[in-house]
Amino acid sequence: MVESLATAPASKVSLLRRFLGWCVHAFTASGIAIAAVILYLLVQGGPDAFRWSFLLMILATLVDAVDGTFARAVRIKEAVPSFDGRRLDDITDWLTYTCLPLMLIWRAGLIPEHTVPWLIAPLLASAYGFCQVDIKTHDGYFLGFPSLWNVVALYIYALPVPPWPALYLLLLLAFLTFVPVKHLYPSMPGKLNRFATITGAVWGVLVVALVFLLPTSAEPERSTAERVMAYGSMIYPAFYMVTSWYITLKGWAQQPAPSTP
């Protein structure tokens, strides 16, 4: 994600750095263009709408994963001090990590039809998470479930998860947005975060392969190859969640007990 850095006087910024700064912002904004195509696919429908929507969500995630590196390289707040790239980044993430995945869950019929209004719960929970000032901790973690609804939608579709358990999972994760569990933040420093970055890259390749195996509907029976790929690729999300909870519980256990008067 785009990081804020100390600003410098605009007069001291070269035209090249200013140009490169705007190029970084344009790269971040490409996520909004990707979101527009996903929206078109989900509204228009068609035999490959869900498959292409998932592929474009992966592309948007890739943009989000590297734009911060580019921003730090050009010292973005110095290069373009008048433009808030972090706000642009949050708008893009809100669309590609939350709104569109939840819309896909609705359009693909992944939860019972009459329970669709319950999708407001993860939507509002994600809005709360995005607006939390301390959502990113000083030691390099996300607090609460980090609105990875694109990943949730993919596995509900790919396995597939039956409609009622899928709804319960969505509501549980929405609730966990409010629980101050430290979730790994792969782009931040730290051994676990670096390990999560490396293994996450391998997982990303598996996910792309999985998406190409997906049927055009959530209803047909899954092939053996697809089931093996889906369950095998779940090792990384399981590692992510288990490690995050382990770190949190360990931290809670090490907190000193309150003194009694």
Rank of each mutant, 00 (worst) to 15 (best):
Y97P: 05
P237A: 02
D134H: 14
L102Q: 00
G109N: 12
I120G: 09
S223K: 10
R72A: 04
Y246Q: 10
M103L: 13
R75C: 09
S4D: 15
V211S: 02
A26D: 13
W118N: 01
I38K: 00
A121Q: 03
V202D: 01
V161H: 06
A125V: 12
F178T: 08
I38V: 14
L124N: 05
Y97V: 02
T216I: 03
S187Q: 14
G109I: 15
V161K: 08
V161F: 06
Y157D: 02
A73V: 07
H183C: 10
G129R: 02
M188D: 07
P122L: 14
L210C: 08
D90I: 13
A35L: 03
L123C: 09
E226W: 04
P122Q: 15
G129C: 06
L55P: 02
G109A: 13
G144E: 00
L20N: 04
P9E: 04
T248L: 08
F175K: 02
S30L: 15
Q255F: 05
G140M: 01
A238T: 15
E113N: 14
G68I: 01
P186H: 06
L88P: 07
T115Q: 12
D84C: 12
R51P: 01
F178A: 13
L100P: 02
A79S: 10
M234K: 13
T199K: 11
V211L: 06
R51Y: 07
T216H: 14
A218S: 09
S147N: 11
P117E: 05
T224C: 13
P9T: 02
T260E: 12
P256N: 14
A153D: 02
F54L: 04
L170E: 07
S82K: 13
S259A: 12
K191F: 12
D89I: 09
F130D: 00
L41Q: 08
T96N: 03
L159Y: 10
S244G: 07
L15Y: 14
G190I: 04
T216S: 15
L88D: 01
K136Y: 12
P117C: 07
S30V: 10
P9D: 05
I105M: 12
K182I: 06
S233Q: 04
